[in-house]
Design a protein around this nucleic acid. Structure first.
Lengths: 225, 225
DNA sequence: ACCTGAACACCGTTCAAGT
DNA sequence: ACCTGAACACCGTTCAAGT
């Protein structure tokens, strides 16, 4: 929680206002002070403009946050597909992670908002296309897409600091957390405490995605059951 | 968005205040009007008490929301384990889902808050214990636990109306969404539009969990790789 | 020990003006 | 066409009182 309020000097010169400028300013606020710091007033201030002026370009705060989330998600840089399904699915998942890592403070926003459907269809098309070429029926492809998406969203949410974590990244905290876990007396938790206390988000993301992709391929090779 | 504000008549008789009573009142607000409707004032009102009184029992609004999330998660009813790992993992995942479905409006809260570590250790112990008995090393068990958790969290977040959905549950909306998807011109999206437009959350949850559990068992049978 | 009045520094949003 | 002053109905939180 940042108690110091950064002002971010208003730009008096170009008081020109536009949807694009507002979006950028809002994202700057998120990057600097977190999503909770976004208010019509803080965003307006960053543009040297009254909060109420924003309403001429944006539908309100909720719409603004949706737009910011969509903007970040739009920054996803999809890989060139190789035709090797496992490799391609992994690469798409990684590109999703890169997009959220570009704005870590905005990640929870992206993962948590019901986006205006159309915003994120490029990666969806990519995944479905890979699955279809790998032999999935349209119905199966959709189920598999949703499973993969759940893994990606769940993993990134944990990395973003929302969602259950149990683990910590800084060496200082790990020992402390480990001790806590060992004091629970829960046998499996105690046994696993050293690994539970530590969380390497990149490694966990890759592990989970690899597992999901492997399961996907398995399902396609052994259809139905 | 509920424009009508429900008052919920204050209980003048037992103006006794306690952490437990506050928690219950807060959860009632969440269930009735959604998490966004929770404020120190609305919760106090429901107890017939001034908002400021809550501070004598609770650390502030954030702490209150954390406590509500922990309370819902604490309501998880773990299954008796059968010794059959696949079955047990699925049953634990389903019990997790049941806990959030008991308070649908609180689901996003539960999934999204960094919970005070200790709150949710019972299900963790259950999963780790199953994985260890199935032959996983402590390290492997933790990776697999995190993968499974990601699937569960990602799936439930979608069901809770946060997170990307693409699909809709009411028959009315499905046709509309399908038409939208078909107009995108993205070939795989168009091809899959009928299935993409519809989303049966229970079926999708089970599909994703089954897939993850299958992958987990596969990984345990074929160690390392 | 527990509750509240007064107070402070914030919110999002509307609308009738002003240019 | 775009911006704002005045205004409204909210927030979370502190602190010095009151019982």
């Amino acid at each position: 929680m940042n108690t110091t309020t950064r002002r971010g000097r208003p730009r008096k010169g170009d008081a020109r206002l536009s949807r694009e400028a507002i979006l950028t300013a809002a994202l700057e606020v998120v990057d600097a002070d977190g999503a909770a710091a976004v208010s019509m007033r803080t965003v307006g201030q960053r543009l040297g403009v009254d909060a109420k002026s924003l309403y001429h370009h944006i539908d309100g705060k909720e719409a603004l946050l949706d737009a910011v989330a969509g903007h970040v998600l739009g920054g996803i840089d999809l890989p060139d597909l190789t035709g090797q399904p496992e490799e391609d699915l992994r690469a798409i998942a990684q590109s999703f992670r890169q997009a959220t890592r570009a704005h870590p403070q905005a990640a929870a926003l992206v993962l948590t908002r019901q986006l205006p459907s159309i915003a994120a269809l490029a990666p969806v098309e990519a995944v479905l296309s890979v699955l279809r070429k790998a032999g999935a029926s349209p119905e199966e492809a959709v189920h598999l897409l949703r499973s993969l998406l759940a893994v990606v969203v769940g993993s990134l949410l944990r990395e973003a600091g929302a969602g259950p974590a149990f683990g910590v990244t800084d060496e200082a905290g790990i020992a402390h957390r480990r001790a806590e876990l060992e004091q629970t007396g829960l046998p499996a938790v105690v046994e696993c405490a050293p690994h539970l206390a530590r969380c390497d988000h990149e490694a966990e993301f890759s592990f989970a995605v690899d597992l999901a992709v492997a399961a996907t391929m398995q399902r396609l090779v052994t259809p139905r059951r």
